[in-house]
């Protein structure tokens, strides 16, 4: 008892959250900040040391790429934060804030990757992590290509890498590989066995560019396809298209503009996610707001986030 009274904690450490109450008395989970899921081997070793010293038998890998230290006594918070090394390994967030962005490996070593998702995740983490939204949590994800392994469109703002292909007919040797590789069947064989692009079917995956033996296909435009308003949980929504070929270095500003709108429009609506705010206010409201700042990239029209009927619980 005596000891409990004397416990002093630096409450600043708890500000952004990331310390989550467990079942056991005095025990907490400490969620670590791992933007994009990238963890250096040396840091991993350090985390293992800290987990061994202060935590339980195991750590937990969260679905959003975090490492969570389990069974941490709240009295050890300061020591855990200090030993992790405040510079190298920060604690993550919870609550109504911008969360740690997730990302796939992207283009660095994944052959499908078209953009540097890791770089984007780090930038967003650095500039926007922990920003209070005033309403609810706010999640961001980056996928390196339209295959979208990180399920970006179930995030408040989801980015997936894209390229627009262009053909130099003279260089084409009519091998047919691109037509065979194009899964959405956006390519058909035309005159002289050269491919013809049906633009509206193209998902901008770049497979044609990657397979073409003569570089007849090349990249005309590159950037992110941006979907907004997704979420999972009790009443899932899939985000819808708001921008195309957004340059990688504009991702942070774009998210900031979405946040600005969300903070304002969700005022007075209670604990509401971005997607539901868009459904209430109308997708055009947000589209117009974004168009004023990103005219070249915002799409001409869109639809509200799409409701997924999960069939359990009528509302």
């Amino acid at each position: 008892m005596e000891e409990t009274k004397q416990t002093k904690l630096d409450l600043n450490n708890l500000k952004a959250g990331g310390f989550i109450k467990e079942r056991g008395k005095n025990l907490f989970t400490v969620r670590l900040r791992v933007p994009g899921g990238r963890m250096s081997v040396s840091r991993l070793k350090k985390i293992a040391e800290v987990a061994e010293k202060f935590g339980g038998e195991f750590v937990h890998l969260s679905v959003r790429q975090s490492i969570e230290l389990i069974n941490i006594n709240f009295k050890d918070f300061d020591a855990v934060v200090e030993e992790l090394g405040e510079k190298q390994q920060k604690v993550a967030s919870c609550g109504a804030r911008v969360r740690v962005p997730v990302a796939c490996g992207g283009c660095e070593y994944n052959p499908n990757g078209l953009v540097d998702t890791q770089k984007s995740a780090l930038e967003v983490d650095e500039k926007l992590f922990g920003t209070p939204t005033g309403h609810h949590k706010f999640k961001v994800a980056f996928a390196g290509c339209p295959f979208d392994c990180p399920k970006s469109s179930t995030n408040d703002v989801g980015f997936s890498g894209a390229i627009e292909p262009t053909l130099d007919k003279a260089t084409c040797i009519s091998c047919g590989l691109c037509v065979k590789s194009c899964v959405p069947k956006a390519l058909v064989i035309g005159e002289n066995n050269k491919p013809v692009l049906i633009a509206e079917k193209c998902i901008w995956c770049g497979d044609c560019v990657k397979v073409c033996p003569t570089e007849a296909w090349s990249v005309k435009k590159k950037g992110y396809t941006v979907r907004i308003g997704g979420k999972w949980g009790r009443n899932p929504l899939v985000g819808t298209l708001f921008a195309t070929f957004l340059p990688e270095d504009k991702a942070v500003d774009f998210i900031a503009a979405v946040l600005e709108w969300y903070k304002l429009k969700a005022e007075g609506l209670g604990r509401i996610r971005l997607g539901d705010t868009i459904i209430k206010e109308g997708a055009d409201e947000l589209l117009n707001h974004l168009r004023s700042q990103f005219p070249q990239y915002v799409v001409t029209e869109t639809i509200a986030p799409q409701i997924i009927q999960t069939q359990v619980g009528t509302h």
């Binding site: 052959p111 091998c175 590989l177 590789s181 899964v183 497979d207 397979v211 033996p213």
Partner: peptide, 19 residues
């Protein structure tokens, strides 16, 4: 196979001549 193998071989530096 026909979607993946040619592009992987191309990425390895080999020359694809036809299909």
């Amino acid at each position: 196979p026909v979607k993946n193998v040619p592009r992987s071989l191309k990425a390895d530096g080999h020359k694809l001549l036809g299909l």
